[in-house]
């Protein structure tokens, strides 16, 4: 089965991929139509019209910045929490490691709506509604468990001799973590960070429930509100969708290796 096949398989693969990615193409095509009459969008954007993007950037520019800030914040928070924890779970002789790992897996069963429901009241008391910090904290519920799982798998694969050698040289656990484990885990950190970024960037539920005003409005909510308000401006709506897809698409092209590693790394979950 591992025998190298020829180009017919490649062609079949391209056709399959084309079918799967057709909606993405259609989104781009629609975003390049003139305002209003997307009803009759052609199969190809023969006369691309960028007015949709002008409108989208005018209406949703701020939302894109908000999404960027929140997603970046979630990456920093998630990695800062997950990296030491992953190290402890992977390499330190702690009691109860199994329980903690199982607990992390169980978190995946908790529906976001349950978390949002309880957080709303708590956030209301703490003044975290309509705040970037509040959204970063909530969005990291997707990132922290995932990052721990991915980084733990990564840190387990670091040869024990390297860590032992550093210990012999008199380095404390913190020192070993900072100067040996973290530098050797750069690839894992990038993989985990990319996914944490995409998770937070894609968040819709927390952005919808933990904000009562438009003060902190990520692009997902911006897009959702757009559907209600501008059903006749499909080009701007679709342009916003394209802009909201940029991080995932860009990362898939630039960091393909990390994305595929993370996608299968999630299997360990």
């Amino acid at each position: 089965m591992k025998r190298t096949r020829g180009w017919p398989s490649t062609i079949a693969g391209i056709v399959l991929l084309g079918l799967m990615l057709f909606p993405v193409y259609w989104m781009v095509n629609a975003s390049l139509q003139p305002a209003g009459n997307v009803l009759r969008a052609g199969w190809f954007p023969l006369h691309p019209d960028f007015s949709g993007y002008t409108t989208a950037l005018r209406d949703q520019g701020g939302s894109l910045v908000t999404s960027l800030v929140v997603a970046a914040g979630s990456v920093v928070l998630s990695l800062a929490l997950a990296a030491p924890a992953a190290y402890a779970l992977a390499r330190l002789p702690l009691r109860g490691t199994g329980v903690v790992v199982f607990g992390i897996l169980v978190t995946q069963m908790v529906p976001g709506i349950v978390v949002a429901n309880a957080l709303y009241g708590a956030y209301n008391d703490l003044g975290l509604l309509n705040s970037r910090l509040g959204l970063i904290l909530a969005d990291s519920t997707a990132g922290v468990p995932f990052a721990i799982i991915v980084l733990r798998a990564f840190m387990r694969s670091i040869p024990g001799e390297i860590i032992e050698a550093a210990r012999m040289d008199g380095a404390g656990r913190l020192r070993v973590f900072r100067s040996v484990v973290l530098p050797l885990s750069v690839n894992g950190l990038i993989t985990a960070g990319l996914f944490v970024f995409l998770f937070a960037w894609s968040d819709f539920l927390f952005a919808l429930t933990l904000n009562t005003t438009d003060a902190v409005r990520p692009v997902t909510v911006g897009l959702y509100q757009y559907i209600g308000a501008h059903t006749n401006q499909w080009n701007a709506l679709m342009a916003t969708a394209v802009l909201a897809s940029l991080p995932a698409s860009a990362l898939l092209v630039v960091a393909q290796r990390h994305i595929t590693a993370g996608a299968t790394g999630g299997a360990v979950k």
Binding site: L17, M20, L21, P23, V24, M27, L198, W201, S202, F204, T220, L223, Y224, A241, A244, S245, A248, S249, L251, L252, Q256, I259, T260, A263
Partner: peptide
């Protein structure tokens, strides 16, 4: 890896 795109896009998109 390009096939992963639908899974990586925000669900709202």
């Amino acid at each position: 890896s390009l096939l992963l795109l639908p899974w990586l896009l925000p669900l709202v998109v």
